[in-house]
Design a protein around this nucleic acid. Structure first.
Length: 296
DNA sequence: CCATACCCCGTTCCTCAACA
DNA sequence: TGTTGAGGAACGGGGTATGG
């Protein structure tokens, strides 16, 4: 062990990314260096510590027990530094709470409810961004996000928001031509690129296993699915909680009364578990859970 | 895919002279 | 006497080539 109380800090950063990726090539790509440079940094750290951190086998890296233990500490420490850095830089920029959501969720569920948040907490600014891509809290400047999934994400705090109930929607005119599920074969099933299996789940729950017998078309986002459905271009598979405003306005109607509750596979409010929760984020979290209970 | 050898380049550190 | 700048050596870190 060297006499200095701190190891080479660049090596720590390289070690953390390599341990996360379990692959030196990928780590090198992230760090914009060559795999050789990554290998050297890891060796430097191992030399400093006097113990191997990785067990190298043919085309495979694995953390040694010492490496696993060290990674847990290093990761926590670096995340703490990232958080402190973000906090310090935010003081110079903006104190807004940065929330990431899916476009459809933001448009049809979150934004309509934000009026109440702004009136309750006029001093808290919300910076809302949308993306289909999953947020990486380690590298992106985001405080919390809305995510669809099963809620089982290690390292994240995930709280279910609303039930994910799948329902089929279409224009009022098109609905007059739909009497049985087989009538769906005369039109087009609309769905998002990311969740083409929503229709399969919904049809299967009604005893229809022959999804391939139906014509279907995909869109990037549910917003586009709803727009296409409103224009009579087909029947969209929709999340009931999100499509409700369009139903209430009469732009869309339920094509069939059947609904499918996706249970734990639903929308979650997620926050990184390795950061202190700011008072503003706590206020937003509490408000959001409350609104979800009211609407859910 | 990873490790090693070798090379190159930029940075850092140290020394020393010039100057206020 | 303290500060500043120039010059050179040492070092760190990244690249390529190559082998296992």
């Amino acid at each position: 062990m060297a006499t200095s109380s701190l190891p080479p800090l660049n090596s720590l950063r390289v070690f953390e990314i390599t341990a996360k990726q379990m692959n030196m090539q990928q780590a090198a790509a992230i760090l914009h260096v060559t795999p050789a440079a990554v290998s050297k940094q890891i060796q430097l750290l191992e030399q400093y510590l006097g113990t191997p951190l990785f067990a190298r086998s043919h085309r495979r890296l694995q953390l040694t027990p010492a490496g696993e233990k060290y990674y847990a500490h290093v990761s926590t420490a670096l995340n703490s530094i990232r958080h402190a850095t973000r906090e310090a830089s935010q003081q110079a920029e903006s104190k807004a709470l940065k929330i990431r959501a899916y476009t459809t969720f933001a448009m049809y569920w979150l934004i309509p409810r934000l009026t109440s948040f702004h009136s309750l907490f006029p001093d808290i600014n919300i910076e809302l961004t949308t993306s289909l891509r999953w947020v990486d809290f380690d590298t992106e400047n985001v405080d919390a996000a809305i995510r669809l999934g099963d809620g089982n994400w290690p390292g994240l705090i995930a709280l279910p928001l609303i039930p994910n109930i799948l329902t089929a929607v279409c224009s009022p005119a098109l609905s007059k031509t739909l009497h049985t599920l087989d009538d769906l074969k005369k039109t087009t099933l609309l769905h998002t690129l990311a969740r083409s299996d929503d229709w399969q789940h919904w049809l299967a729950s009604q005893g229809k296993k022959d999804f391939d017998a139906f014509h279907h078309r995909s869109y990037e986002s549910s917003v586009l699915v709803y727009q296409a459905a409103m224009r009579g271009q087909g029947v969209g598979i929709a999340q009931k909680a999100l499509v409700l405003p369009l139903i209430e306005r009469g732009d869309l109607v339920y094509a069939f009364p059947h609904e499918l509750d996706m249970k734990s596979y639903t929308y979650y409010f997620v926050m990184p578990g390795n950061r202190p929760i700011s008072p503003d984020l706590q206020a937003f979290h509490d408000w959001l859970i409350n609104r979800a209970e009211v609407s859910g």
